[in-house]
Amino acid sequence: MISPMIPRCRYRVDPLRSYELAVAENPLNAPGGSGNRRKRSLGVASKFWKPGRTLWVSFLGAPDRRLKMSIFELASQWLDLSGANLEIDLAEDDDKKATIRILTGPHLPHSLSDIGTDALAYGEDTMCINVPLGHDFFENTVLHEFGHALGAEHEHRHPDADIPWNEQVVLQSHMAAGWTEADVRQQILSKIDDVGLRKTAYDRTSIMHYAVPQAFTHGDWEVALPQQLSEKDLEFMRLAYPHD
């Protein structure tokens, strides 16, 4: 059975609007305008925040303080461990002007996040976390969703991944759990187009990689659920948000 707690990324912004927001936030997001600064573990180069800025994080609905601080401390690892030129800080609860606005609770259908500057398109939540504190998936989910919020895409969709998917099994398993075929292809199976893409090598240990059970692939191929940031995840942050 597929867990409803699998973290996702959210694709809801019209492409033109997404582009306009990204370039207004950081002109280096424009195609051809950022040189080597667009390299990433697998980030969406057109949706990076402006290096050096502070992203304000607000929790909607005033959840338990222990839960909030656990989420914030995990999210801070992306920057504390990488030394990237970006900061996050806590805003007051229910601050609709905060950059990242988080809903929490097991009643939420999915954990998901807008990708980078797409968060600027809406006034409501930009991230949902439905995994409770103490759950085996908690750390993975929080780190994964904040990776999206900072501009990272799913690593298993890396153009060099070459995962030997058993597509029929993947589709059947996820659709039986309520995913649509479009969901499965967009979140898992489809590779990101390698058109002018700047990237580091594919990383099976990335926090942005889904767990891949043996049953989902042909041959002897699987990936365990990542539990911490990899070295390439940290490299991604430094390349996406340089100090120069």
Score class of each variant (00 low, 15 high):
residue 111 S to W: 02
residue 92 E to F: 13
residue 100 I to G: 00
residue 44 V to Q: 06
residue 97 K to A: 13
residue 153 E to P: 01
residue 71 I to R: 04
residue 108 L to T: 05
residue 109 P to L: 08
residue 136 D to T: 12
residue 43 G to V: 08
residue 105 G to E: 07
residue 47 K to V: 08
residue 147 G to L: 07
residue 133 L to M: 12
residue 43 G to C: 09
residue 143 L to A: 08
residue 68 K to N: 11
residue 122 Y to P: 00
residue 31 P to S: 05
residue 161 A to H: 05
residue 66 R to K: 14
residue 25 E to W: 06
residue 79 L to C: 05
residue 159 P to Q: 12
residue 118 D to M: 01
residue 112 L to C: 11
residue 82 S to F: 02
residue 122 Y to A: 09
residue 26 N to C: 12
residue 52 G to P: 04
residue 146 F to W: 05
residue 91 A to S: 15
residue 92 E to H: 13
residue 144 H to M: 01
residue 117 T to I: 04
residue 112 L to K: 13
residue 68 K to I: 15
residue 141 T to D: 06
residue 51 P to D: 02
residue 87 E to Q: 15
residue 107 H to Y: 14
residue 38 R to C: 00
residue 114 D to R: 09
residue 78 W to K: 01
residue 149 A to D: 08
residue 64 D to I: 05
residue 100 I to F: 00
residue 58 S to E: 09
residue 80 D to K: 12
residue 76 S to K: 12
residue 111 S to G: 08
residue 131 V to N: 03
residue 96 K to L: 15
residue 67 L to I: 10
residue 131 V to K: 08
residue 121 A to V: 00
residue 151 G to K: 01
residue 106 P to W: 04
residue 114 D to L: 15
residue 67 L to A: 08
residue 161 A to I: 09
residue 88 I to N: 00
residue 80 D to P: 02
residue 118 D to Y: 02
residue 40 R to Y: 09
residue 133 L to Q: 12
residue 113 S to I: 10
residue 48 F to Q: 03
residue 28 L to T: 03
residue 94 D to G: 12
residue 142 V to D: 05
residue 125 D to P: 00
residue 33 G to Y: 11
residue 160 D to K: 13
residue 130 N to A: 11
residue 99 T to M: 04
residue 113 S to E: 11
